[in-house]
Protein backbone atom coordinates (compact mmCIF):
# COMPACT_ATOMS: atom_id res chain seq x y z
CA UNK A 1 0.00 0.00 0.00
CA UNK A 2 1.36 3.31 -1.03
CA UNK A 3 0.38 6.02 1.41
CA UNK A 4 1.00 8.78 -1.11
CA UNK A 5 -1.78 7.49 -3.26
CA UNK A 6 -4.47 7.67 -0.63
CA UNK A 7 -5.67 11.10 -1.89
CA UNK A 8 -6.07 9.49 -5.31
CA UNK A 9 -8.20 6.75 -3.79
CA UNK A 10 -10.33 9.30 -1.98
CA UNK A 11 -10.77 11.35 -5.14
CA UNK A 12 -12.06 8.33 -6.99
CA UNK A 13 -14.37 7.41 -4.12
CA UNK A 14 -15.87 10.90 -3.94
CA UNK A 15 -16.17 11.19 -7.71
CA UNK A 16 -17.87 7.83 -8.08
CA UNK A 17 -20.36 8.47 -5.32
CA UNK A 18 -20.96 12.06 -6.34
CA UNK A 19 -21.14 11.69 -10.09
CA UNK A 20 -23.03 8.41 -10.35
CA UNK A 21 -26.48 10.08 -10.59
CA UNK A 22 -25.08 12.22 -13.40
CA UNK A 23 -24.54 9.08 -15.47
CA UNK A 24 -28.12 8.00 -14.80
CA UNK A 25 -29.24 11.45 -15.92
CA UNK A 26 -27.15 11.19 -19.08
CA UNK A 27 -28.58 7.82 -20.01
CA UNK A 28 -32.11 9.10 -19.38
CA UNK A 29 -31.40 12.13 -21.54
CA UNK A 30 -30.02 10.00 -24.37
CA UNK A 31 -33.03 7.71 -24.25
CA UNK A 32 -35.28 10.73 -24.44
CA UNK A 33 -33.38 12.01 -27.48
CA UNK A 34 -33.53 8.65 -29.22
CA UNK A 35 -37.28 8.62 -28.61
CA UNK A 36 -37.55 12.12 -29.97
CA UNK A 37 -38.43 13.67 -26.64
CA UNK A 38 -36.67 16.64 -25.10
CA UNK A 39 -35.81 14.88 -21.82
CA UNK A 40 -35.62 15.99 -18.22
CA UNK A 41 -32.02 17.14 -18.25
CA UNK A 42 -28.82 15.79 -16.78
CA UNK A 43 -29.56 16.86 -13.24
CA UNK A 44 -32.93 15.16 -12.94
CA UNK A 45 -31.65 12.28 -10.75
CA UNK A 46 -30.26 14.82 -8.28
CA UNK A 47 -33.61 16.55 -8.11
CA UNK A 48 -35.30 13.22 -7.49
CA UNK A 49 -32.80 12.38 -4.77
CA UNK A 50 -33.29 15.75 -3.08
CA UNK A 51 -37.04 15.35 -3.14
CA UNK A 52 -36.85 11.85 -1.71
CA UNK A 53 -34.39 12.81 1.02
CA UNK A 54 -36.66 15.58 2.21
CA UNK A 55 -39.78 13.48 2.38
CA UNK A 56 -40.74 11.78 5.57
CA UNK A 57 -40.50 8.03 5.01
CA UNK A 58 -43.48 5.71 5.37
CA UNK A 59 -42.80 2.28 6.73
CA UNK A 60 -44.95 -0.79 7.17
CA UNK A 61 -45.88 -1.89 10.69
CA UNK A 62 -44.21 -5.22 10.07
CA UNK A 63 -40.85 -3.78 9.03
CA UNK A 64 -37.98 -5.01 11.19
CA UNK A 65 -34.56 -3.56 11.79
CA UNK A 66 -33.26 -5.41 8.74
CA UNK A 67 -35.56 -3.36 6.54
CA UNK A 68 -34.14 -0.13 7.89
CA UNK A 69 -30.48 -1.13 7.75
CA UNK A 70 -30.55 -2.64 4.26
CA UNK A 71 -30.49 0.65 2.27
CA UNK A 72 -27.40 1.78 4.15
CA UNK A 73 -25.70 -1.55 3.54
CA UNK A 74 -26.60 -1.37 -0.14
CA UNK A 75 -25.14 2.10 -0.35
CA UNK A 76 -21.99 1.18 1.57
CA UNK A 77 -21.40 -1.97 -0.47
CA UNK A 78 -21.79 -0.21 -3.78
CA UNK A 79 -19.54 2.66 -2.69
CA UNK A 80 -16.86 0.12 -1.74
CA UNK A 81 -17.25 -1.64 -5.09
CA UNK A 82 -16.86 1.71 -6.84
CA UNK A 83 -13.70 2.39 -4.88
CA UNK A 84 -11.80 -0.75 -5.87
CA UNK A 85 -12.38 -0.76 -9.63
CA UNK A 86 -9.51 1.02 -11.37
CA UNK A 87 -11.14 3.86 -13.28
CA UNK A 88 -8.55 6.45 -14.20
CA UNK A 89 -5.53 5.28 -12.25
CA UNK A 90 -4.15 1.89 -11.32
CA UNK A 91 -2.61 3.32 -8.16
CA UNK A 92 -5.38 2.37 -5.80
CA UNK A 93 -4.07 1.59 -2.31
CA UNK A 94 -7.44 0.05 -1.55
CA UNK A 95 -7.35 -2.43 -4.40
CA UNK A 96 -5.68 -5.34 -2.54
CA UNK A 97 -8.69 -5.46 -0.21
CA UNK A 98 -10.78 -7.20 -2.79
CA UNK A 99 -9.88 -8.78 -6.10
CA UNK A 100 -12.22 -9.55 -8.98
CA UNK A 101 -13.79 -12.52 -7.17
CA UNK A 102 -14.40 -10.47 -4.04
CA UNK A 103 -15.91 -7.75 -6.21
CA UNK A 104 -18.48 -10.25 -7.44
CA UNK A 105 -18.88 -11.18 -3.78
CA UNK A 106 -19.76 -7.58 -2.91
CA UNK A 107 -22.47 -7.56 -5.55
CA UNK A 108 -23.82 -10.84 -4.17
CA UNK A 109 -23.71 -9.43 -0.65
CA UNK A 110 -25.76 -6.36 -1.53
CA UNK A 111 -28.14 -8.42 -3.63
CA UNK A 112 -28.87 -10.76 -0.74
CA UNK A 113 -29.58 -7.84 1.55
CA UNK A 114 -31.85 -6.20 -0.99
CA UNK A 115 -33.79 -9.44 -1.43
CA UNK A 116 -34.07 -10.08 2.31
CA UNK A 117 -35.25 -6.53 2.94
CA UNK A 118 -37.90 -6.95 0.25
CA UNK A 119 -39.17 -10.11 1.94
CA UNK A 120 -39.15 -8.45 5.34
CA UNK A 121 -42.45 -6.59 5.17
CA UNK A 122 -44.29 -9.62 3.88
CA UNK A 123 -46.11 -8.49 0.77
CA UNK A 124 -46.66 -10.72 -2.20
CA UNK A 125 -44.83 -8.26 -4.44
CA UNK A 126 -41.84 -7.95 -2.17
CA UNK A 127 -41.18 -11.68 -2.13
CA UNK A 128 -41.89 -11.90 -5.84
CA UNK A 129 -39.32 -9.18 -6.47
CA UNK A 130 -36.85 -10.94 -4.20
CA UNK A 131 -37.34 -14.20 -6.02
CA UNK A 132 -36.86 -12.58 -9.42
CA UNK A 133 -33.83 -10.64 -8.25
CA UNK A 134 -32.22 -13.82 -6.94
CA UNK A 135 -33.11 -15.58 -10.18
CA UNK A 136 -31.27 -12.92 -12.16
CA UNK A 137 -28.49 -12.96 -9.60
CA UNK A 138 -27.78 -16.67 -9.50
CA UNK A 139 -27.38 -16.71 -13.26
CA UNK A 140 -25.63 -13.37 -13.71
CA UNK A 141 -23.13 -13.84 -10.89
CA UNK A 142 -21.38 -16.92 -12.34
CA UNK A 143 -21.45 -15.33 -15.79
CA UNK A 144 -19.74 -12.22 -14.43
CA UNK A 145 -17.22 -14.36 -12.59
CA UNK A 146 -16.31 -16.27 -15.73
CA UNK A 147 -16.12 -13.02 -17.71
CA UNK A 148 -13.59 -11.83 -15.16
CA UNK A 149 -11.67 -15.11 -15.32
CA UNK A 150 -10.68 -14.63 -18.93
CA UNK A 151 -8.57 -11.49 -18.30
CA UNK A 152 -7.48 -13.07 -15.02
CA UNK A 153 -5.99 -15.97 -16.98
CA UNK A 154 -4.43 -13.63 -19.52
CA UNK A 155 -2.69 -11.61 -16.83
CA UNK A 156 -2.23 -14.45 -14.28
CA UNK A 157 -3.90 -12.42 -11.59
CA UNK A 158 -7.35 -11.81 -10.22
CA UNK A 159 -6.43 -8.39 -8.93
CA UNK A 160 -8.20 -5.79 -11.04
CA UNK A 161 -5.35 -3.29 -10.99
CA UNK A 162 -2.86 -5.94 -12.10
CA UNK A 163 -5.24 -7.03 -14.85
CA UNK A 164 -5.54 -3.49 -16.14
CA UNK A 165 -1.80 -2.94 -15.95
CA UNK A 166 -1.03 -6.10 -17.88
CA UNK A 167 -3.71 -5.37 -20.49
CA UNK A 168 -2.27 -1.92 -21.11
CA UNK A 169 1.37 -3.00 -20.87
CA UNK A 170 1.80 -3.87 -24.54
CA UNK A 171 1.08 -1.23 -27.14
CA UNK A 172 -1.82 -2.94 -28.80
CA UNK A 173 -2.64 -6.57 -28.25
CA UNK A 174 -5.88 -8.04 -29.46
CA UNK A 175 -7.29 -10.75 -27.26
CA UNK A 176 -9.89 -12.73 -29.22
CA UNK A 177 -11.21 -14.31 -26.03
CA UNK A 178 -12.08 -10.86 -24.79
CA UNK A 179 -14.55 -10.44 -27.65
CA UNK A 180 -16.67 -13.23 -26.17
CA UNK A 181 -16.20 -11.87 -22.69
CA UNK A 182 -17.31 -8.42 -23.86
CA UNK A 183 -20.56 -9.71 -25.32
CA UNK A 184 -21.25 -11.76 -22.20
CA UNK A 185 -20.37 -8.81 -19.99
CA UNK A 186 -22.77 -6.51 -21.80
CA UNK A 187 -25.57 -9.03 -21.27
CA UNK A 188 -24.71 -9.33 -17.59
CA UNK A 189 -24.56 -5.55 -17.25
CA UNK A 190 -28.04 -5.20 -18.71
CA UNK A 191 -29.42 -7.88 -16.40
CA UNK A 192 -27.69 -6.83 -13.22
CA UNK A 193 -28.65 -3.19 -13.51
CA UNK A 194 -32.24 -3.87 -14.34
CA UNK A 195 -32.10 -2.47 -17.86
CA UNK A 196 -34.10 -3.42 -20.91
CA UNK A 197 -34.43 -6.22 -22.11
CA UNK A 198 -34.33 -7.84 -18.68
CA UNK A 199 -36.13 -5.26 -16.60
CA UNK A 200 -37.55 -1.87 -17.36
CA UNK A 201 -36.22 0.86 -15.04
CA UNK A 202 -39.21 3.09 -15.84
CA UNK A 203 -41.99 0.59 -15.45
CA UNK A 204 -44.95 1.19 -13.21
CA UNK A 205 -46.64 -2.15 -13.54
CA UNK A 206 -45.84 -4.26 -10.51
CA UNK A 207 -46.30 -7.61 -12.20
CA UNK A 208 -43.53 -7.04 -14.70
CA UNK A 209 -41.02 -5.47 -12.38
CA UNK A 210 -37.93 -6.84 -10.78
CA UNK A 211 -36.16 -3.93 -9.18
CA UNK A 212 -39.35 -1.98 -8.82
CA UNK A 213 -40.93 -4.81 -6.86
CA UNK A 214 -37.86 -5.07 -4.64
CA UNK A 215 -38.07 -1.53 -3.32
CA UNK A 216 -41.84 -1.21 -3.53
CA UNK A 217 -42.16 -0.66 0.21
CA UNK A 218 -39.37 1.87 0.46
CA UNK A 219 -39.94 5.59 0.53
CA UNK A 220 -38.28 8.83 1.52
CA UNK A 221 -34.60 8.80 2.41
CA UNK A 222 -34.43 5.00 2.27
CA UNK A 223 -35.59 4.97 -1.32
CA UNK A 224 -33.17 7.78 -2.10
CA UNK A 225 -30.27 5.70 -0.79
CA UNK A 226 -31.37 2.69 -2.83
CA UNK A 227 -31.70 4.74 -6.02
CA UNK A 228 -28.33 6.29 -5.40
CA UNK A 229 -26.77 2.89 -4.76
CA UNK A 230 -28.12 1.54 -8.03
CA UNK A 231 -26.69 4.56 -9.85
CA UNK A 232 -23.30 3.79 -8.31
CA UNK A 233 -23.71 0.17 -9.32
CA UNK A 234 -24.32 1.13 -12.93
CA UNK A 235 -21.29 3.40 -12.99
CA UNK A 236 -19.18 0.68 -11.38
CA UNK A 237 -20.29 -1.86 -13.96
CA UNK A 238 -19.51 0.49 -16.81
CA UNK A 239 -16.12 1.16 -15.21
CA UNK A 240 -15.45 -2.58 -15.00
CA UNK A 241 -16.31 -2.88 -18.67
CA UNK A 242 -13.98 -0.02 -19.55
CA UNK A 243 -11.18 -1.44 -17.40
CA UNK A 244 -11.44 -4.86 -19.04
CA UNK A 245 -12.16 -4.09 -22.65
CA UNK A 246 -10.92 -0.55 -23.41
CA UNK A 247 -8.40 0.19 -20.66
CA UNK A 248 -6.11 2.32 -22.81
CA UNK A 249 -5.44 5.78 -21.44
CA UNK A 250 -5.51 4.89 -17.77
CA UNK A 251 -2.85 6.54 -15.60
CA UNK A 252 -0.30 4.10 -14.20
CA UNK A 253 0.50 4.02 -10.54
CA UNK A 254 2.79 6.93 -9.60
CA UNK A 255 2.31 8.94 -12.78
CA UNK A 256 0.66 11.98 -11.28
CA UNK A 257 1.01 14.09 -14.40
CA UNK A 258 -1.11 11.71 -16.44
CA UNK A 259 -3.91 11.91 -13.97
CA UNK A 260 -6.01 14.80 -15.41
CA UNK A 261 -5.70 13.43 -18.93
CA UNK A 262 -6.66 9.93 -17.78
CA UNK A 263 -9.66 11.36 -15.97
CA UNK A 264 -10.77 13.18 -19.10
CA UNK A 265 -10.37 10.04 -21.20
CA UNK A 266 -12.36 8.06 -18.65
CA UNK A 267 -15.18 10.60 -18.69
CA UNK A 268 -15.32 10.47 -22.49
CA UNK A 269 -15.47 6.67 -22.37
CA UNK A 270 -18.27 6.73 -19.81
CA UNK A 271 -20.23 9.24 -21.90
CA UNK A 272 -19.84 7.02 -24.94
CA UNK A 273 -20.79 3.90 -22.98
CA UNK A 274 -23.85 5.65 -21.56
CA UNK A 275 -24.99 6.69 -25.00
CA UNK A 276 -24.38 3.17 -26.28
CA UNK A 277 -26.40 1.73 -23.42
CA UNK A 278 -29.26 4.13 -24.14
CA UNK A 279 -29.18 3.17 -27.82
CA UNK A 280 -29.23 -0.53 -26.93
CA UNK A 281 -32.17 0.00 -24.62
CA UNK A 282 -34.06 1.93 -27.27
CA UNK A 283 -33.51 -0.79 -29.86
CA UNK A 284 -34.40 -3.77 -27.68
CA UNK A 285 -37.76 -4.75 -26.30
CA UNK A 286 -38.28 -6.10 -22.82
CA UNK A 287 -38.59 -9.84 -22.85
CA UNK A 288 -40.79 -12.20 -20.92
CA UNK A 289 -39.57 -13.14 -17.49
CA UNK A 290 -38.99 -16.73 -18.49
CA UNK A 291 -36.74 -15.73 -21.33
CA UNK A 292 -34.35 -14.29 -18.73
CA UNK A 293 -32.79 -17.61 -17.72
CA UNK A 294 -32.19 -18.29 -21.39
CA UNK A 295 -30.70 -14.83 -21.90
CA UNK A 296 -28.37 -15.18 -18.93
CA UNK A 297 -27.65 -18.81 -19.70
CA UNK A 298 -26.47 -17.64 -23.10
CA UNK A 299 -24.31 -15.00 -21.40
CA UNK A 300 -22.85 -17.67 -19.13
CA UNK A 301 -22.10 -19.97 -22.06
CA UNK A 302 -20.52 -17.12 -24.01
CA UNK A 303 -18.30 -16.32 -21.05
CA UNK A 304 -17.29 -19.98 -20.80
CA UNK A 305 -16.64 -19.95 -24.52
CA UNK A 306 -14.37 -16.96 -24.05
CA UNK A 307 -12.43 -18.95 -21.50
CA UNK A 308 -12.21 -21.79 -23.98
CA UNK A 309 -11.07 -19.55 -26.82
CA UNK A 310 -8.36 -18.30 -24.52
CA UNK A 311 -7.03 -21.84 -24.36
CA UNK A 312 -7.59 -22.46 -28.07
CA UNK A 313 -5.72 -19.43 -29.29
CA UNK A 314 -3.44 -19.01 -26.32
CA UNK A 315 -4.54 -15.40 -26.01
Amino acid sequence: MNAREIPLQLTQFVLVVGAAPLLAGWIGQCRAWFANRSGAGLLQPYRVLRKLFHKSPVMAHEASLLFRIAPYILFGGMALAGAIVPMFSTGLPFAPVADAIALVGIFAFTRIFAALAAMDVGTAFGSMGARREMLVGFLAEPALLIVLFTPALISHSTSLTVIVMSLTAARLVLYPSMAFAAVAFTMVLLAENGRIPVDNPDTHLELTMIHGALDLEYSGRYLALIEWASAIKLLTYIAIGIALFVPWGIARSGHWAHFPLALAIFVVKVIAAGAGLALLETLLAKMRLFRIPEFLGTAFMLAVLGLLVHFLLGA
Binding site: K55, M59, A60, T123, E217
Partner: peptide, 13 residues
Protein backbone atom coordinates in the same frame (compact mmCIF):
# COMPACT_ATOMS: atom_id res chain seq x y z
CA UNK B 1 -32.76 14.74 7.00
CA UNK B 2 -34.58 14.16 10.22
CA UNK B 3 -38.17 13.75 9.18
CA UNK B 4 -39.80 11.16 11.44
CA UNK B 5 -40.80 7.76 10.10
CA UNK B 6 -44.49 7.29 9.62
CA UNK B 7 -45.78 3.76 10.18
CA UNK B 8 -48.62 2.48 8.08
CA UNK B 9 -50.06 -0.68 6.61
CA UNK B 10 -48.25 -2.31 3.71
CA UNK B 11 -48.99 -1.22 0.17
CA UNK B 12 -51.71 -3.49 -1.20
CA UNK B 13 -51.76 -2.29 -4.81
Amino acid sequence: FRKPIRRSAIWNC
